[in-house]
């Protein structure tokens, strides 16, 4: 099975899965915190509407984890540039 690297740890995914789905399947429920209250955020709407699920992939910030398909070796961090 292919893997991405989330904050240093390998996370498996099935081809065609979004990064958000792969993280959720691995039991990772949140991957960023909010700017003011530091509240944890993960998937909420699942379809690219809520922007709760922001991640940085291979250095590119502010992507929606539920919209980006995982590719082997992707290096993923939670949040956008403000994280």
């Amino acid at each position: 099975m292919s893997q991405i690297v989330f904050e240093g740890r390998p996370v498996p995914f099935e081809p065609g899965q979004s990064i958000g789905a792969a993280l959720t399947a691995a039991g990772i429920r949140s991957w960023r915190t909010t700017r003011f209250g530091g509240r944890p955020r993960g998937l909420f709407c699942g379809i690219g509407v809520c922007f709760d699920c922001l991640i940085t992939v291979n250095g590119r910030p502010s992507l929606r984890a539920c919209m980006v398909e995982a590719r082997p070796g992707d290096v993923v961090q939670g949040g956008g540039p403000d994280a």
């Binding site: 099935e14 979004s18 789905a21 399947a25 998937l43 699942g46 379809i47 539920c66």
Partner: peptide, 15 residues
């Protein structure tokens, strides 16, 4: 999650 979000995860990603 939203209900649709849970559904989308299941249908689209089998999670």
């Amino acid at each position: 999650l939203t209900a649709g979000g849970a559904q989308a995860l299941l249908k689209g990603d089998r999670v």
